[in-house]
Amino acid sequence: MNLLDFARGAAMKWSLAVFVFGIFWRLTGILLLHRTHDYSVPRAHGALLGALRTIIARSWPRREFRARTAYGLAVSYAFHIGLAIVVFGFVPHILLIRSLTGLGWNGLPDGVIYFCAVVTLIALIMALIRRVTHPVLKLLSNFDDYFSWVVTAAPVVTGLLTVAHYGARYETLLALHILSFEVLLVWFPFGKLMHGLLLPVARGQTGAFYARRGVNP
């Protein structure tokens, strides 16, 4: 068994197993937590709409803080959107998703994917630079932040090296790319990357809470 066989076989199986195990553990544990019953009379209805509104509104810069948050937001948007395009637009990735879920769609040309991957990588590097240079953010950052950055950037770097056939033989680069993604899968439920699933839950909860009180944040 060579490295690629390992990456496509046992490593993929067990990383996916850890991923779904962790996801179900975290989500079930959080969603079944005790909630204090709210006995107050609601001032307004439409908790669901309020939840959706807050999820979107809090992802957009507030005018008052725009100058201070513009850099971070722009960079964050760049790599989040870039990652989404690369993950869900590249045909080999779509084939993997289809093999796992049965869902498939048409992909984008490779040139578009390569461009987005480069933009994503640049944005990730800019985000890291901000994290290590910003006086407050630097103090707030811990191992989880940096390791989550590494496991996010690694598949992008190895993916670009793979399509460029740079640094090693193609099958070795492909194996490293798949393995780096599998490390991300294993880390995802247990680190800050879990915000991908918990962020809508947390913001939605806050939005529903405010909506009940007639507040439109």
Binding site: R8, A17, F21, H34, S99
Partner: peptide
């Protein structure tokens, strides 16, 4: 089978992972 897909057959393992994860989550709650 396309090269970018896995070569494993582990439906049972994934199913067990879902059940185990949910069970521990329920226990924690």
């Amino acid at each position: 089978q396309a090269l970018s897909t896995g070569t494993w057959s582990g439906g049972t393992v994934l199913g067990a992972a879902v059940v185990a994860g949910a069970a521990i989550g329920v226990g924690a709650a």
